[in-house]
Design a protein around this nucleic acid. Sequence first.
DNA 1: CGCGGCTTTGATGTTCATCAAGTAAAGTGG
DNA 2: CCACTTTACTTGATGAACATCAAAGCCGCG
Lengths: 235, 235
Amino acid sequence: MSFVIAPHKKTCSCLSCELRGLTFSSLSEKDIERVCEAREEISYSKGEVIHEEGEIIRDFRYLKNGLVKLYRVSESGDEQIITITRPKEFVSNMNVFHEEKYRFSLSALEDSVACCINIDLIKELLEKNGKFALNMITVLSRTSENIISLNLEIRKRNLAGRVAFVLLYFSGEIYYSRIFDLPVSRKEIADLISMSSANVIRTFTEFRRDGIIQSNGRTIEITDMHKLEVISKRG
Amino acid sequence: MSFVIAPHKKTCSCLSCELRGLTFSSLSEKDIERVCEAREEISYSKGEVIHEEGEIIRDFRYLKNGLVKLYRVSESGDEQIITITRPKEFVSNMNVFHEEKYRFSLSALEDSVACCINIDLIKELLEKNGKFALNMITVLSRTSENIISLNLEIRKRNLAGRVAFVLLYFSGEIYYSRIFDLPVSRKEIADLISMSSANVIRTFTEFRRDGIIQSNGRTIEITDMHKLEVISKRG
DNA sequence: CGCGGCTTTGATGTTCATCAAGTAAAGTGG
DNA sequence: CCACTTTACTTGATGAACATCAAAGCCGCG
């Protein structure tokens, strides 16, 4: 099956989008085209804010590629990171359906691309197409549960256990490699695991001393996976 | 509009159920009746487990009244409480839609009643009726976000702030009163806020000494709401 | 090249967990 | 109903875990 690129858009590939299967698989071709017409693809460069807490929700945002962090800033100014995640997850698009404004902020940790589709159109399609809605429920549920589980995992560990867990998270869930460049600062790790950045750094130093990791700035190599897993488990 | 109680059921009140508006408002009368036929109303007495982590999900459970805690037990045997909530929230029914087994456990803190409806019937109705599905999405989203927000609030506070926050939570969100009977043990509060029970108790004692609360066993009276709010905020 | 932000390390003090022992309360079986 | 057992609660003492503060080095950026 072939399709023609609309002349007024650089990319209009919903029909062939590799992410289509995640949620939009149950839409008819006609509806997919409507979405395609209405959508806007926005690129965010590393560090850019995608949306902020309190901002009015106008569209449903679907992360195509990149890496983002979902977070909240308290009155006192410090940041709490809720999750760091790749496209398959929905992230902030949970409260899209029951609130007027975003409750959390979202920003790009790597260059990212998001599809923005008017929220009313999505709601209309959900209402019209139960299969699509059931699909959406499935994806939203998974996302929420992953966030909740991540939190439970973190909160049951001590400092070293949390740092180990986060390193394993990046290695196993984000980069699929023993060697990777951390997408976040030490302070952001601290904000994710609710510890002070000084102690996160100290823990890195210990891991280095004990031959568990090698690190040079943001480049990390896990040299003793087993030990790291043990620390994560008992911590 | 009147309805007749089916002879083979003690209660079959879906049409007039006071909770209908929350999710089932968009179902036709015919579908409501199907649900009504299929559903089973189960009572749980205080302390009883409604479902456990790992159990196969057979039905969609809808809390009619009571109070429940959602929690998880780690390999080491200690409990992490995720949330404590009243009927309007869905609680465990998130992973109903994307997993075979429950990821968390649910138990009754007060005598509770749940409607159990076969999950396949619910899925069928969601698929058939987009309005119903959109409704469901709204409720599920709200529930998830409340859990996530609760967690963020707790994790940004210190011991005293967490205890104050939890007391205000019970007072303001669960019992709507300055005076109430705690539905949980000191240890359960500890499991909710990730602190040791000894320190939770110590904090209670301090609050009592400082004239912030009066407490006799599980009966709590908040005597200085303002001070408690200040502790919760700055904690 | 100089400024500001991130990182690192050490020193210090606070917060919190843990252990232990004792008390109250609540269920259990005779 | 009482003796018994168990579980929840309470308090103190101790040490470990962690935050905070401060100073110095590093790196990137204008």
